[in-house]
Each structure stands twice: as C-alpha cells, then as structure tokens.
Computed example of a mutant assay.
Amino acid sequence: MSTTTFRSLPGITAAEITAGQQLPPLRHPVSATTIVLGALASRDWRPMHHDKDFAVERNGVKNIFINTPNNAAWFERYITDWTGPKGRLGRLRFEMKKSVFPGDEMCFAGVVRELATDAAGCHWVDLDLTISVDGEVRTTGHARVAVPGDPTDNPWTRKGERWMP
C-alpha cells in the first residue's frame, strides 16, 4: 500500500515553496505485478522485466526488475502528487544506479533545490529526487516542474513561448 502525507486538491502554489524544502516521502511496495504491468504499459517486451529465469540466468540479477519508463512514471507520480493537478512537469532526468525488485519497498524523497520565475511569469521549481530501498539509494534524479504562482494561475494554460521548460 502506498503511504503519503500529501495535501488534497487544489495543490501547492509557488508562494508555499522554499529552497531546501523537503517533499513528503512516498513509499510503495513493489510486486512482480508492479514490474510486469509497468513494462507492458511502456511496450517493453524485454524478458528481464517479466521472466525471472531470464533475468537471473542472462542478466545475473536476483529477479525481474523495474524498467526505465516505469521508473520515470513513478517519479512523475511522486512530483505531481506533491504539486497537485496544476503542477506541469517540464524536465526529468534520472540515473538508475541499482535495480528495484519484487519485494522491495521504494521510498521516494525530494528536496527543492531552486525556485525561479521566467520572463513569461511561469514559476519553476527545480527538485533533487531519490528512490531508496532499505536506506540504499537506487535512483537519483532531477526535475523541473511548473507550479501556479497563485490559486488562479495554471501552468497548463501556457502555450508556445510562454511554455519553455
């Protein structure tokens, strides 16, 4: 079961965010189903994401493991759970240092690195992110997400030159 302490709608605004602020943690237990469905959703048919024997014998790991698009989706969920529905992911990059397997519990953590407002008035939050299992960092990442400046603002309405992540 996922556990989190995120707020409910309508979400966070730039005025509520400060550099150094910690995002609430998100924990999620990983099952074989989590891994297989993530691979299928991203059309990743490679057997190391659904065939344990192949993963162990050919890849030398202990089990099937989460693929890159599945990892990205979990990061996006973590970020947008924090921002609320008006948070608009602009950039995401991450490095998978070690695999995540069935039976692991992923613990997502994040910290606000920087806040900025661009010339078009879009409010940007730069985040440093991690996924850990049993205290060991498995994936590190960075994201840039647009958040509303106030409750009437909506980064999703920005178009063209007004949307430049």
Rank of each mutant, 00 (worst) to 15 (best):
S2P: 14
T3M: 04
T4H: 15
T4D: 14
F6R: 10
R7E: 13
R7H: 12
R7W: 07
S8D: 15
P10T: 03
P10H: 06
I12Q: 07
T13Y: 03
A14I: 08
A14P: 02
A15I: 03
E16G: 04
I17A: 00
I17D: 00
I17V: 15
T18N: 11
T18V: 13
Q22M: 11
Q22N: 11
L23Y: 04
L23P: 02
L23R: 03
P24W: 08
P25D: 12
R27W: 10
R27L: 12
R27S: 15
S31N: 09
A32R: 15
A32G: 14
A32P: 07
T34C: 05
L37H: 10
G38E: 03
G38P: 05
A39W: 03
A41R: 11
S42R: 11
S42A: 15
R43M: 11
W45H: 09
R46T: 09
P47Y: 07
M48Q: 14
M48W: 08
M48R: 09
H49A: 04
H50Q: 07
D51S: 04
D53L: 13
D53N: 12
F54L: 03
F54K: 00
V56I: 11
R58A: 14
R58M: 12
N59C: 11
G60W: 05
V61Y: 01
V61S: 00
V61K: 02
I64E: 00
N67C: 12
N67L: 02
N67W: 03
T68M: 11
P69H: 05
N70H: 15
N70Y: 09
N70C: 14
N71S: 13
N71P: 00
F75H: 13
E76I: 13
E76G: 14
R77I: 08
R77S: 13
R77G: 14
I79L: 14
T80K: 11
D81E: 15
W82K: 02
T83W: 04
G84P: 05
G84M: 07
G87A: 05
G87T: 00
R88W: 08
R88D: 06
R88H: 06
R88S: 07
G90Y: 01
L92K: 08
R93A: 14
S99V: 06
V100C: 08
V100G: 01
F101H: 12
G103D: 08
D104E: 09
M106L: 10
M106V: 09
C107D: 07
F108L: 10
A109Y: 00
V111P: 00
V112W: 03
E114S: 13
A116I: 05
T117G: 02
T117S: 07
T117Y: 01
A120L: 06
G121M: 07
G121H: 04
D126W: 08
D128P: 01
D128Y: 01
L129T: 02
L129I: 06
T130S: 12
I131W: 02
D134S: 14
E136C: 08
R138A: 12
T139I: 15
T140K: 12
A143E: 03
V145Y: 00
A146W: 01
D150A: 10
D150I: 02
P151Y: 05
D153Y: 04
N154C: 07
P155A: 04
W156C: 01
T157D: 11
T157F: 05
R158Q: 03
R158I: 00
K159N: 10
K159D: 12
K159I: 11
G160F: 05
G160W: 04
E161L: 10
R162Y: 06
W163R: 09
